[in-house]
């Protein structure tokens, strides 16, 4: 593929993914300004690693994974003089996300089953903490917990889900 074709294909793929990507980032960030900042960084990595992208696989799933890493970096970068991951590390992760995309898509599918197996209370807690209606602090107050201990609860739930996903993913493959 020559540079021009590559660029054309990239613009087409990126164009298709952009509305969903913007909406997705808006859920994670406080303002459209932040969204644009992160998009800018995300697009650089996507373009740099586009050679490894295989036509036919899901560009938008890949893009949203890359964007997610960028959001974490951006949030940390907001507070000055904080350590953030280097671009090399982020690019390496972006590249490996591509390699793993099939597996990741499957895991997200299995996650739904695993999520349904949780207790109702745990499900509600996760849904609330992932929607933007309440901050972790407010949620912790409602639950009568400290934010720190709520983070611990959420971490434990995620690890539990990850284990369930892995076990069931293995089952699916016999």
């Amino acid at each position: 593929m020559n540079e021009k074709d590559k660029y054309g294909l990239f613009i087409a793929e990126y164009g298709k993914a952009l509305p969903a990507l913007r909406a997705f980032l808006r859920q994670l960030l406080p303002s459209w300004f932040d969204v644009d900042e992160v998009l800018q960084e995300t697009s650089i990595i996507l373009w740099k690693k586009f050679d490894q992208f295989e036509p036919g696989s899901s560009f938008s799933a890949w893009a949203s994974m890359v964007a997610r890493f960028e959001v974490l970096k951006y949030r940390r970068g907001k507070s000055r003089d904080r350590h953030v991951f280097s671009d090399e590390t982020l690019e390496l992760l972006a590249e490996e996300c591509l390699d793993m995309e099939e597996k990741l898509a499957e895991q997200r599918q299995v996650l739904k089953t695993c999520f349904a197996k949780l207790e109702q209370k745990q499900q509600t807690l996760l849904t609330q903490s992932y929607s933007r209606d309440l901050s972790i602090k407010e949620l912790a107050e409602n639950e009568g917990k400290s934010p720190g201990s709520l983070y611990k609860v959420l971490d434990r739930l995620r690890v539990k889900l990850m284990k369930c996903v892995k076990d069931n993913g293995a089952l699916a493959h016999g």
Partner: peptide, 11 residues
């Protein structure tokens, strides 16, 4: 990556 993916799935 898998952890972030779970995070994405939960979202």
């Amino acid at each position: 990556i898998e952890y972030i993916n779970i995070d994405a799935g939960l979202k």
